[in-house]
């Protein structure tokens, strides 16, 4: 999976799961604010990622994820590690 493909897939999943406007998503946007995440939503984010990418986001990893770009980079790293 290329980085562009991964980004598109992540965005598709987030738009579907959290019902946000795709236009609101940009690499520099803050993940928490844009998706309107509360503490419960992070649990669902873990499920979405696990069921679609096969890796589990550890709760402590969210500490370093602020923007969408942070999230893409993290996901790419985990997907690459998995391969």
């Amino acid at each position: 999976m290329t980085e562009a493909e991964l980004i598109e897939k992540v965005n598709d999943l987030l738009v579907e799961e959290f019902e946000v406007d795709r236009a609101a998503i940009s690499p520099d946007a803050v993940l928490k604010d844009t998706l309107g995440l509360d503490s419960l939503d992070y649990v669902d984010l873990v499920v979405v990622i696990e069921s679609n990418f096969g890796f589990k986001v550890k709760p402590e990893d969210f500490m370093g994820i602020v923007t969408f770009q942070d999230f893409y980079s993290y996901a790419l790293k985990r997907v690459t590690e998995k391969v």
Partner: peptide
């Protein structure tokens, strides 16, 4: 199947 409670989701 998953052996992980976190994968049950928040609902």
């Amino acid at each position: 199947a998953k052996r992980d409670t976190m994968l049950l989701g928040s609902g």
